[in-house]
Amino acid sequence: MKEFFHRRIERNAIGFVLAIVGVASIGGLVEIAPLFTIHETVEAAPDMRLYTPLELAGRNLYIREGCYACHSQMIRTLRDEVERYGPYSLAAESQYDHPMLWGSKRTGPDLARLGAKYSDAWHVAHLINPRDVVPESVMPRYGWLQRNPLRIDDLGEHLAAQRAVGVPYTDAMIENATADARGQANPEAAESSGVTERYGEATNVRVFDGNPSLVTEMDALVAYLQVLGQLTGAAHQETAGRQE
């Protein structure tokens, strides 16, 4: 009798556990599951290019330094945002962003369309001391980016991991990742021709940090910032289409 009672209580508790998990999971499933079939409805962006190894490394630095905590990369479909920052963001634009960096707070301005807005030199000066360029800024200084050499020997592994989660990097891109990073940061180097070959003519191949002899973290971060909003023209076309 005692044994039976004990078992009943135990079952009671387990049932309770299942009820909580069941009740709680359904909301999430309903909201999230349809998003995995959503590619059927997402605007196509056939001209979309991938991050180069240097830009991907820069993106990882953007994450490392916590830039996403103060800068969003998601322009909402509101008139003032479109006028301030540019065409509103499309789902397709972040389809290869693992993870996404939409952000949740604008202590500083949105960066979704930052690319090609300022010169490399401006970015370098701004990152070394933001108040040299914008006196009222409260952004931290990032002087170490200019001094730290970028770790490029493992970029192939990074690209391979990205491919494993769904970004269509080719074998050639993975094999040449390290060389491409060096080449993109120095147009004089022999390796630079391969970058545009693999990632397209529009790729920025420049000495981003002003120092051709070393690939620094500054090179990578500026390369990334300069490509924000530049990977596809879909958003500009979409906005133009709406206005007609």
Binding site: V30, E31, A33, P34, T37, E40
Partner: peptide, 24 residues
């Protein structure tokens, strides 16, 4: 994926409501 996006959405919307009422 074989299931059509719109049918997933329709299922989510209709059965979600039914489920809400049943639970309440």
């Amino acid at each position: 994926m074989d299931i059509d996006h719109y049918s997933v959405v329709a299922f989510a919307k209709s059965w979600g409501l039914f489920y809400l009422i049943a639970l309440a």
